[in-house]
Design a protein around this nucleic acid. Structure first.
Lengths: 222, 222
DNA sequence: GACTGTAGACGTACTTAGTACGATAATCAA
DNA sequence: TTGATTATCGTACTAAGTACGTCTACAGTC
């Protein structure tokens, strides 16, 4: 017992999924291989197959773990505020795990955490008094926006301001031809400016959607 | 010349990209392999490498071809109408090529068609009188929504009404436990109804965003 | 304390997929 | 014709997922 406890902490599905997420965060999904994962855990590839069904299943678990990190809409807030808070939290989590966004929707089997989120979101929309059809619309619309924004944000050339300026510089040079005047203008006069942040657009769109959703709820109530 | 024209139509990058898109549309990205593509074209794998740099580059070309299929915002329409038309067209094209959505943003090198789209969109927003920062917001917000919606729509279990009802049925049964009352209600009383279509939510959200964008433009003009 | 069953760990090897390399065939210019 | 350029393709290497069977360590029984 002592011997084994010293060397390795005992493998488990949870530990494997955690390690996989760490690896994906660090070096991207494409470098998450079963062999690399085994190395990282100090074990051999085939050992992992005793805890996880296969790589596809591992990806499912990883996605579910990401959902677990998002805040559920709080029942204590006004329903619109609760929606805003959960959407912001969702985006924040997705951007921290950029690899997860394309996976979110392509996984066929919904995990328990995903179901909890759906349920909580629907309950919040219900609190706002939305009938079923508007509930469905509102949820589809909000999630589309949050996923889409995160998808774009997660794939920006670089997070650090330096590299982004570098890339932008190339783009500007390439556009000096004059074929893309608007792009050139936007890049040089806006994107390359010190304070620029793509993420700042998130709230803008979110408020538009929330305004639309609450306006429709009031119509209903009237 | 006659001999060769009979047997095979002469390989070209264009033909290869077209075939790749056809294959991906039919059986999904994961079954698009270099070997399968070569078979489909009646040639050998390595032949393709004389027209395409490698698989990654092939994916880039495929994405650019998808962009080429989308309508640009028409300069003849009112700017808001032009935005609406181009967003609808974008969604329609993306849903026809479900494999493309996760790729759109992950491709690092923007193709010529993508640049044309960006340029045309920015020009349209400029027509609306938006200053640079609002232009950037508006574009980011619209594209996020369109991509996100398409991402969700492209990954629905099935397009045909039959299979969707089948899946929904399982879900309802699984939720009979009572752990997910809202989900159960939404599924059984709304999603499973005959006329239901996820896609119908698209215009709802799009109008919210367009309303928000044009309202902000008017503020500016005032 | 020896015996045995079970679960976890792992070595080996098969399969699929991308693609480097070099040889061969086809096209075209001079 | 001839040389050069271009296209085609056969072979083989590498990376990655994973099936199969073995081995080890510990649990519980006699």
């Amino acid at each position: 017992m002592t011997d084994q406890a010293q060397r390795k902490v005992k493998l488990s599905r949870e530990r494997i999924v955690d390690a996989a997420i760490t690896l994906a965060d660090q070096s991207g999904l494409e470098s998450l291989t079963i062999r690399a994962l085994a190395d990282h855990l100090g074990t051999r590839p085939m050992t992992l197959y005793h805890h996880v069904d296969g790589k596809e299943s591992l990806l499912d678990w990883m996605v579910d773990r990401v959902f677990a990190q998002m805040e559920l809409p709080s029942p204590d807030l006004d329903w619109i505020d609760a929606l805003r808070q959960r959407c912001r939290s969702t985006r924040a989590v997705l951007v921290e795990h950029p690899w997860s966004v394309p996976l979110l929707e392509s996984r066929t089997s919904p995990g328990p955490e995903l179901l909890r989120h759906h349920e909580a979101m629907l309950a919040t929309l219900d609190r706002g008094g939305l009938p079923l059809d508007r509930m469905a619309h509102a949820y589809a619309v909000l999630d589309s926006y949050v996923y889409g924004f995160s998808l774009q944000e997660a794939n920006l050339p670089a997070q650090g301001g330096e590299q982004i300026a570098e890339v932008a510089h190339e783009v500007v040079a390439a556009f000096a031809s004059g074929a893309y005047p608007q792009l050139a203008r936007l890049t040089s006069e806006h994107v390359m400016r010190p304070g620029y942040s793509f993420g700042s657009s998130f709230d803008v769109g979110l408020e538009m959607l929330l305004a639309g959703i609450s306006a429709r709820a009031e119509e209903e109530g009237a």
